[in-house]
Amino acid sequence: MTQQHKHIISMLVEDEPGVMTRISGLFARRGFNIDTITVGKTQTPKVSKIVITVKGDDRTVEQIEKQVNKLVDVFKTIEMKDDESVTRELCLVKVSLSNEKAKTDIMHYAQVYKAPIVDITPKSAIIQLVGKPQKNDAFLELMKPYGIKDISRTGTTAIQRGGNGEK
């Protein structure tokens, strides 16, 4: 069996109700697992962009791209290769502030990660991370010993580097 990798697929779609259902329905029916999915408007009216991350071997991902491309509402799909694109994820994490040392440590780590603290109470702080998912993972790992109370992640979005537009 070929190797399973994480792939990021970006799709330009018609901004119609039901498009997300069609895409997620297609993934479910064909047995593809969605890791994350994000969606938003683009510079073109009535065109939205959906970015999906999936795990699979190259053949599976090729099949996903082809199947998605067949959907009438989809204009274009592009696989976002790591070295040719910028990928980011927003993550909000709520951490316990159990004692003074924890508080100092956490604020220090947040500073190193250039992650603002967006809310704070005597018992907890919410830290906002924006970065590659791997970087966010690493920060969350650091927070574990202090007690993570809640996490909200947007999932990965991505854009091609340089002159490679998608229009």
Binding site: G18, T21, L26, R29, L71, V72, D73
Partner: peptide, 14 residues
């Protein structure tokens, strides 16, 4: 019916 026919149509419209 949009949901029911989703995986068995080439396309559907409401």
């Amino acid at each position: 019916m949009m949901g029911i026919t989703l995986p068995i149509t080439k396309h559907s419209f409401q």
